[in-house]
Design a protein around this nucleic acid. Structure first.
Lengths: 209, 209
DNA sequence: GGGCTACCATGACGGACGTCATGAAGGAGG
DNA sequence: CCTCCTTCATGACGTCCGTCATGGTAGCCC
């Protein structure tokens, strides 16, 4: 609570984007939520709404990255599958405790502005990268080969984001549990040096048709 | 092109939501895009914007379901992994051909309105169900046990939706290719009757910590 | 033909938005 | 004390939004 008004506004913007999306999040809503003076907007964010949202997206990316590091440190007997389960559990806990009003701000930003603002789309892309990097690094710590770790990190982020959307649509955490249950063996298998395609049809083409 | 103005408006609404999200899609934009008379809005959609968007979402769900059936019919020597690859390839092709402006309308609707409108959130949930059902049914046709097919369908939808978001953020189809490459062995393994948790730690708890 | 219904056209209303102009506190340094 | 600069306050402007009111046209049915 000792945060500067500027920080509060960025943080409030991120939270409001999670709930209402970029388009439906007004500048007046942000200052009201941040209990900040409205006049400060044009002072701290001369770039207008885009600058504010871009900073909120960047903050969200950093926050996600920090959260990965924090949760990874608390896993005992760590495996890739447990890391993914822990990441999903954070969303599970929030949904059950706080409801399904808030989703991922990066998804909301991409959905609303990918076609409209290159700046915001790029900011979201960098935020995703900043989130993906510690995931991949942690996977390597757990014994996943470097060549594989970024691929698995992309899979984890994709499955998690998609499950979040499904969970919100259904107001049910079941999709989160499902992707964790299904992905866990695959992820843990990658750490023990088992080849990726041990089950693939031998000699099968890697493209469809 | 022989579509009725009403159909054109629903279809245009769906396309505009894919690009701009729900909040930034205006009714005037819809009638302009559909080349429909503006006066028809209050006649065909007395429920206002919510009704129009809800119908667009429902249409999108039906369309996705039809597309699954259509693409499944064209796969030779079908396996679950090939089905997933084919579904991802449809998005891959669209991104490379048309650019990254348009995403999944269901994701955009959930991100924008999950906290605001129960009607739209529910419509999105039903649309996801209508999409998931033919996927699960096709998996069963391919030899996946019934108990497993819905779980894998949820995983496929989640991973696909998440990869679509990542692809749009990066303006690169790589995430789609990655999730297909990583998920293919797992999916194909499920069809040959291999147990899901063959790699899981024996007797391990299914929750983290 | 008269009347009824379906469909389309147009303009207006109230509100919310992002942005800007203007100006007032309030401490720092001379 | 005066001045400068950061920070905050407030009101206004122009635009766009979703919705509504009103009226016009076209075709079918009795």
């Amino acid at each position: 609570m000792t945060r500067t008004p500027r920080e509060r506004m960025v943080l409030s913007a991120a939270q409001l984007v999670r709930i209402h999306g970029v388009g439906a999040t007004g500048m007046r809503d942000v200052v009201a939520h941040a209990e900040a003076p409205r006049g400060s907007l044009q002072h701290y964010f001369p770039g207008g709404k885009d600058q504010l949202i871009a900073e909120a997206v960047a903050w969200a990316g950093d926050y996600a990255a920090r959260r990965v590091a924090r949760v990874a440190a608390k896993i005992e007997d760590p495996t890739p599958g447990k890391l993914f389960a822990a990441m999903a559990a954070q969303w599970r806990d929030e949904f059950t405790a706080q409801g399904y009003d808030a989703g991922c701000p990066l998804v909301a930003t991409v959905a609303d502005t990918a076609a409209t603002s290159d700046d915001l789309r790029e900011a979201a892309g960098k935020a995703f990268d900043g989130w993906q990097r510690p995931v991949a690094a942690t996977l390597e710590d757990y014994g996943v080969p470097a060549a594989r770790s970024t691929s698995l990190a992309v899979l984890m982020l994709s499955a998690l984001e998609g499950a979040i959307v499904l969970a919100r649509a259904h107001q049910d955490v079941a999709p989160l549990d499902t992707v964790v249950a299904e992905l866990r063996p695959l992820l843990d298998g990658a750490a023990s040096g088992v080849a990726n395609d041990s089950f693939a049809t031998p000699g099968g083409a890697s493209t469809v048709d």
